[in-house]
Design a protein around this nucleic acid. Structure first.
Lengths: 217, 217
DNA sequence: CGGAAAATGGGGGATCCACCCCATGCCATT
DNA sequence: AATGGCATGGGGTGGATCCCCCATTTTCCG
């Protein structure tokens, strides 16, 4: 019979990812000597929550982007119904807000889908025994981004107009100030965000999810 | 000994997906009686293209959303350098423009990451032998025709790198062509999209939803 | 085969941008 | 009163861009 010490639930909207994770978990010797039994899978957040209430597993492998309910919601619900379950989140996105939300919600493990799996394999046993591990990648992200609240009013205004595709001259006319002043704000912006061109600035702002379409002049 | 009849390259920005796919491909009896040998993996588009030029494999498993170069771009480049390679695309998104682009570019197989893998496993052998299979899911999507401006291969390639925040010079180096050619593609792009600057181009691409802001570095 | 479209690359010029210098006010906190 | 941050501008330089002109080759399609 199976003498597996731990069981787990996998929640991800991609069947291929679930298959790969299940294979890794259940393979004896890779993570646990006897493997980890996968008792349920879920392709959306609501199913994930239902399965957690039903099985109350030792481990929940969770994707952040899922239909019906995202990573943070499922994490909170998992905590409500199964306090002993260790929740490990795998994410393909590294938006600052999401990462800090997950950590504040008390996630037990946080790994990037893009990075090498060996880190994931190595840390999982410790997490099952009560340790906590956040991938360096996310820690560095959190440290490198107290830059957003450092934006001044004018800089934020300018940034939003840049993201709307307006040129220096158009922004100057829109805000009723000189082109040189806009240039100054833009230069400060780029320094604070550590970029060297407008396209890079836009790409960066998009990646950080700092879009605010509801700003008026 | 391993007498594997086919070899393959896997391109996906998520290591876990690559591991799962590699496992499935190489497992004897699941897809091919002797399994399919995975000769290389790539985590971004440029690496994928380089590996294709190097190995010229029978099969390329390709993700659509990757850093440096997206699915369509890699597909086109794969065709350029290794015409006999069968290209099978796995996608988590089902944007109409993307799907039609892939089909027009001559993709050999198109499957959804979210759907069950059995369809993928069953159809792969036929694709390796010259058949073509587009998942029903995408065919139904194509019924509702969109109308996006017709972009050429190079233009689309250039557009994606512009959206990543790269300059003319960086794009030229990345694609191995002259700055002037990149400039020409960019000019054509802006004419077709009716904009007059890169920021406007990016803003437009945002509005049309032809960009994925939630991408990891 | 022939033509069209795409891709490649170059010259040149007007404009814009990135980034340095500088100064003047206006506020806050100290 | 003073220091510092923010916002406002100007001058100037070098580089990048935008957009014309032009040419060649490759590729695709009827």
């Amino acid at each position: 019979m199976n003498e597996q010490k731990y069981n787990a639930i996998i929640a991800d909207d991609h069947a291929i990812v679930r298959a790969g994770l299940k294979d890794a978990l259940e393979k004896p010797g890779l993570i646990e000597p006897d493997g980890i039994k996968v008792v349920a899978e879920a392709g959306d957040g609501l199913t994930a929550i239902a399965e957690i209430r039903k099985h109350r597993p030792h481990l929940l492998l969770l994707d952040v982007s899922m239909p019906m309910a995202g990573g943070v919601e499922v994490l909170v619900e998992a905590r409500r119904w199964s306090r002993e379950t260790k929740v490990v989140v795998l994410t393909g996105v590294s938006a600052v807000g999401l990462v800090s939300d997950l950590i504040e919600a008390g996630v037990d493990g946080l790994f990037s889908k893009a990075s090498d799996n060996t880190e994931f394999y190595q840390k999982l046993p410790g997490i099952l025994r009560g340790q906590r591990h956040i991938s360096e990648h996310f820690l560095s992200i959190l440290e490198e981004t107290p830059k957003l609240p450092m934006l001044t009013d004018r800089e934020r205004q300018t940034l939003n107009m840049i993201l709307a595709g307006r040129s220096n001259k158009e922004i100057a006319e829109g805000l009723g100030i000189s082109i040189k002043t806009v240039d100054k704000h833009r230069t400060s912006l780029m320094q604070k965000l550590n970029v060297r061109s407008v396209p890079q600035l836009m790409a960066r702002a998009l990646k950080e999810g700092m879009i605010d379409p509801s700003k008026e002049l």
